[in-house]
Design a protein around this nucleic acid. Structure first.
Length: 427
RNA sequence: GGAGGGAUGGGAGAGUGGUUGAAUCCGGCGGUCUUGAAAACCGUUAUACGUAAGUAUCGGGGGUUCGAAUCCCCCUCCCUCUUCCA
């Protein structure tokens, strides 16, 4: 949530943000409601003051009995007025809040203005693209031959966009999560946690998935949601808390499955393992001092790209432009990995600085060392990495002419010595 | 699932209708003392809105009352006992 003071003092700035983001919110309505609210508060405070004075007099018995009855009756009328006023005020405040929750975060000055994802500038590329002297295969075809990803049976067990992961692919996913978590905990200073996978609506409102994006989520019958990303529980760990400044920055990582309904992406990536309702992801979250969040974003990006470099997978980093950046982010880098069968890079990570936007929604603050007012922390999150898509990248980039897959050097110990995924032979 | 108990300031914990935004203790901060530290002692120590007067806040919502942390109702969460279970 943005600070309503920004909207009051500089509505043009918010209007510009909305325009650049290609979205629309009725700001004038919010401002009107806000003014109405101010007036009600002012009037109500005066009535309450009068009521409190009257009650004080009655209580102290300083009024003579005749006047007392009149005063009580008069005060009762004030009470009625307060009652209706308070309920009006509450409704008004709720409506303002609900509308405020639909305003996206302000953009950082370095976030490029663009009209669509076409306008996301590329920052740099890393790695040599693989050259194949045989026809490149799609990972779904490779996996089918190797009998390691089973889409039809995923459908049988659940629904379309679910895949049964088998044998060497299952081991590869397990190896990747362990590898990624080990790097982040041992080299990058993140604390590993295992959060609940079912999340309540307050948390999802805190990180910005609710109320606007409910249709992207799976909801359970008792009102909880399957998490769409570990960003939600990790960022919300300190919801409604005040941290000590010395506790910052907080670095958290988790491996979790993620669940997304993928509403609105019918027909996209229907073949293969790119777009699933359930996928594994290792997530990084940072809670930082507001003055440090942009340098922390650069570090976060490095934390994520390091995984790809160690796996020797070619990637590029792009900056999301105003039309493509997420609702909660002020600035966001996407890391895209090379996918040979598509002859292009595909998203494998998103690293965002959400500034105080989520912290304000979730009420995550810290007490400055030098004293004074509590301030909102800045929250950052990044995938490092999406495990399923990493499997896709390894299958495709490391495919051999015979359809076998070379295991990246750093994963071999995690694969219990397996260096290659080959055709299974059933006797 | 069954029965009961509870939710108060950073923490512990008083407070059953009228200067109680809230005793006391711990913690935090400042000071006295000390070469320094500890101990002791003194002071101080919530948040939001508002230029201010002020208003609101004792889990959340509603009600009773001139007046509610305190009484009544609903909801949420937590705990204990019991049952079941990886």
């Amino acid at each position: 949530m943005i600070d309503i003071k920004i909207l009051r003092n500089d509505p043009e700035q918010v209007t510009a943000t909305l325009k650049n983001r290609k979205t629309d919110v009725d700001l004038q309505k919010i401002l009107d409601l806000d003014n109405e609210r101010k007036e009600i508060i002012f009037r109500l405070d005066q009535i309450k003051q009068q009521r409190n004075e009257n009650s004080g007099k009655i209580g102290k018995g300083k009024v003579d009995p005749l006047e007392k009855q009149t005063l009580i009756e008069e005060t009762r009328r004030l009470g009625d007025e307060i009652k209706t006023g308070d309920s009006k005020l509450r409704d008004l405040t709720d409506e303002i809040n609900n509308r405020m929750l639909t305003i996206p975060n302000s953009l950082h000055e370095s976030t490029p203005i663009g009209q669509s994802e076409e306008d996301n500038p590329e920052n740099y590329r890393w790695g040599k693209l693989p050259v194949f002297d045989f026809p490149v295969k799609h990972h779904a075809d490779l996996a089918e031959q190797l009998d390691i990803l089973d889409a039809p049976r995923g459908v049988k067990l659940a629904h379309s966009r679910f895949t049964l992961v088998k044998g060497a692919a299952a081991r590869l996913e397990r190896a990747l999560m362990n590898f990624m978590l080990d790097i982040h905990t041992e080299n990058h200073g993140f604390e590993e946690v295992i959060p609940p996978l079912l999340i309540n609506s307050q948390c999802l409102t805190g990180t910005g998935q609710l109320p606007k994006f409910e249709e992207d989520l799976f909801k359970t019958t008792d009102g909880l949601y399957l998490l769409p990303t570990a960003e939600v529980p990790l960022t919300n760990i300190y919801r409604e808390e005040i941290l000590k400044e010395d506790a910052l920055p907080v670095y958290l990582t988790a491996h979790t499955p993620c669940f997304r309904s993928e509403a609105g992406s019918y027909g996209k990536d229907t073949k293969g393992y790119i777009r699933q309702h359930q996928f594994n992801k290792v997530e990084l979250v940072k809670l930082t001092h507001p003055d440090k969040s942009y340098e922390e974003l650069e570090l976060l990006l490095k934390n994520a790209t390091e995984i790809l470099e160690r796996l020797e997978l070619p990637y590029r980093v792009i900056s999301l432009c105003s039309a493509d950046i997420g609702f909660s982010a002020a600035k966001c880098y996407d890391i895209e990995v090379w996918v040979p069968s598509e002859d292009r890079y595909r998203e494998i990570s998103s690293c965002s600085n959400c500034t105080d936007f989520q912290a304000r929604r979730a009420n995550i603050r810290f007490k400055p060392n030098e004293g004074g007012k509590t301030r909102y922390v800045h929250t950052l999150n990044g995938s490092a990495l999406a495990v399923g898509r990493t499997v896709v990248a390894i299958l495709e980039n490391n495919q051999m002419s015979d359809g076998s897959i070379k295991i990246p050097e750093v994963l071999i110990p995690y694969m219990r010595g397996l260096t290659k995924i080959e055709m299974r032979t059933y006797d």
